[in-house]
Computed example of a mutant assay.
Amino acid sequence: MAANTASNADARSSARRRTLLRGRICWGPHHAISADCAIRDISETGAQLRLPVTQALPPTFALIHILDGCAYEAVLAWRKGEFAGVKFLTKHDLKVPGPRELLALRQVWLALAPS
Rank of each mutant, 00 (worst) to 15 (best):
Asp36Gly: 14
Leu67Ser: 14
Trp109Ile: 00
Glu44Gln: 12
Ala56Thr: 10
Lys80Asn: 04
Thr90Arg: 12
Val53Arg: 14
Leu103Asn: 13
Val75Ser: 12
Leu105Pro: 11
Leu102Arg: 14
Ser115Glu: 07
Gln107Cys: 07
Val75Met: 07
His31Glu: 09
Arg79Val: 05
Asn4Pro: 02
Arg24Pro: 03
Lys87Gly: 05
Cys37His: 04
Pro58Ser: 08
Ala11Thr: 07
Thr90Tyr: 05
Arg24Ser: 04
Arg22His: 15
Leu105Ile: 13
Ala32Cys: 11
Arg100Tyr: 06
Trp78Thr: 01
Ser7Pro: 02
Arg12Thr: 08
Ala77Phe: 01
Glu101Phe: 13
Arg106Phe: 06
Pro99Gln: 10
Arg22Pro: 04
Arg40Lys: 09
Ala35Phe: 11
His31Cys: 11
Leu102Glu: 06
Gly46Arg: 06
Ala38Trp: 09
Thr90Cys: 08
Asp10Phe: 06
Thr19Ala: 12
Ile64Met: 06
Gly69Ser: 07
Ala74Ser: 15
Thr54His: 15
Gln48Glu: 10
His65Pro: 02
Gly46Glu: 05
Asp93Phe: 00
Pro52Arg: 10
Ala3Cys: 08
Thr90His: 13
Tyr72Phe: 15
Leu76Cys: 06
Gln107Arg: 15
Lys91Phe: 02
Phe61Tyr: 07
Leu94Phe: 01
His65Glu: 12
Ser43Gly: 09
Cys70Pro: 01
Gly85Phe: 03
Arg79His: 05
Asp41Gly: 05
Asp36Tyr: 08
Gly69Phe: 00
Asp36Val: 06
Ser34Glu: 08
Gln55Thr: 12
Arg106Ile: 01
Arg106Asn: 13
Glu82Arg: 09
Arg79Phe: 03
Glu82Ala: 03
Ala113Asn: 03
Ile42Asp: 00
Ala84Arg: 01
Ala56Asp: 06
Ala9Tyr: 04
Ile42Met: 08
His31Lys: 05
Lys95Asp: 01
Ala32Tyr: 04
Leu103Arg: 15
Leu49Val: 09
His65Arg: 05
Gly69His: 00
Gln48Leu: 13
Thr45Ala: 15
Asp10Gln: 12
Ala15Thr: 11
Val53Lys: 09
Ile25Asn: 03
Thr45Cys: 14
Trp78Tyr: 13
Pro58Trp: 10
Arg100Leu: 08
Thr60Ser: 11
Arg79Glu: 02
Gln48Thr: 13
Ala113Tyr: 02
Ala6Met: 06
Ala35Ser: 15
Ile64Pro: 05
Ala32Val: 08
Ser115Ile: 03
Leu94Cys: 03
Arg100His: 10
Leu21Glu: 14
Arg12Leu: 10
Ile39Gln: 01
Asp36Met: 11
Gly28Ser: 12
Pro59Asp: 10
Gly81Asp: 09
Ala74Thr: 07
Met1Gln: 11
